[in-house]
């Protein structure tokens, strides 16, 4: 009995320590180091040396990092509410008794979750670029010219669209299944009071799926801070996405293009700490509100 929980949790803990904790600690250690030149060979050799907090100072004093968080904020303000709003809307609609083609819609909306990034990249290039886009084709036929999917502020919408497309189904299923966990009696009571379906949806259902919405919000925020796939997808097709557009793109550049793993490790540490702070902040606000409401 006393040993049992340790045995059950054991494999997970061992794997966690070996494949996540130690690599994370290793990354933190790396973030205190740098590759520096020493004599030898034709050009000298780069060897690892200890540099203390130099990488952190470098990362934090880089104005591009602040700018990239600004871009994330704009993107997040579009993508997060729309993803969750649409997910909630679809979930509520699926829960309307008389709606047809439910299984088709539910499956279709979920499918993008299963489409790999490599494929999504190819796909959206064709959807957005003026001469291959079927949408721009329509607007051009109508005499309005192509849609500026990939330039200026249109870019934020296009990026958010990819995220919404990929994420709305997953969030919809979370909210929908939690909707189906609500006992019918609650609706009956509301109906007896003369409420219509819309009123029931807004006044009964939405408050009851609050916890599910909170959870999806936290995950959506973490996803926003770790935004990477969508801008990387569109980068080869537009000059408006720089290599440092999002914080994770900078990390990728440092780790995989310019052979500066220590800087990537330092940025990652800062990003992870920021994410923890933001998550705690949101959960704190929500808990205080709840607590306040109860007292």
């Amino acid at each position: 009995m006393r040993l049992a929980p340790y045995l059950f949790a054991g494999p997970a803990v061992v794997l966690y320590v070996v494949f996540m904790l130690i690599p994370v600690l290793y990354a933190i250690w790396l973030s205190l180091r740098a590759y520096r030149l020493q004599a030898g060979g034709t050009f000298g050799r780069r060897v690892e040396v200890f540099v203390g907090l130099e990488n952190y100072i470098g990362v934090l004093s880089d104005p591009e990092l602040l700018a990239s968080f600004g871009r994330l904020a704009i993107y997040g303000l579009i993508a997060v509410p729309l993803t969750l709003g649409l997910a909630l809307l679809f979930a509520l609609l699926l829960d309307v008794p008389a709606v047809r083609a439910k299984r088709f819609s539910r499956t279709a909306i979920f499918i993008p979750y299963a489409v790999p990034g490599v494929v999504a990249a190819l796909m959206w290039g064709f959807m957005y670029l003026p001469s291959t886009s079927p949408f721009s084709y329509l607007t051009e036929q109508a005499g309005w010219g192509p849609i500026p999917f990939l330039t200026g502020s249109g870019l934020f919408g296009s990026l958010a669209n990819i995220a919404i497309w990929g994420g709305v189904g997953f969030n919809m299923i979370i909210i929908y299944t939690s909707l189906r966990g609500i006992p019918d009696e609650l609706y009956e009571a509301a109906r007896l009071d003369g409420a219509n379906e819309l009123q029931i949806a807004l006044r009964v259902k939405v408050p009851l799926v609050g916890p599910a919405i909170l959870l999806t919000t936290v995950f959506a925020l973490i996803g926003t801070l770790q935004l990477y796939g969508e801008p990387m997808t569109l980068k080869p097709m537009t000059n408006d996405i720089s290599q440092t557009w999002a914080p994770l793109m900078t990390i990728y550049r440092d780790a995989f293009l310019t052979d500066n793993l220590p800087a990537a490790a330092a940025s990652s540490t800062i990003l992870a700490l920021g994410t923890v702070a933001l998550s705690l902040l949101i959960l704190g606000i929500v808990n205080r509100k709840r607590f306040g409401a109860r007292s």
């Binding site: 649409l86 809307l89 679809f90 609609l93 699926l94 309307v96 008389a98 709606v99 047809r100 083609a101 439910k102 088709f104 819609s105 279709a108 909306i109 979920f110 499918i111 993008p112 489409v115 999504a120 796909m123 959206w124 959807m127 497309w165 709305v168 189904g169 379906e197």
Partner: peptide, 20 residues
């Protein structure tokens, strides 16, 4: 009461399916 919700859902479904 079912037509509008069904239409919205099907539009959402088509939106998700187009790239696929």
């Amino acid at each position: 009461g079912a037509i509008l919700p069904t239409v919205i859902l099907v539009i959402g479904a088509i939106y998700c399916l187009i790239p696929v």
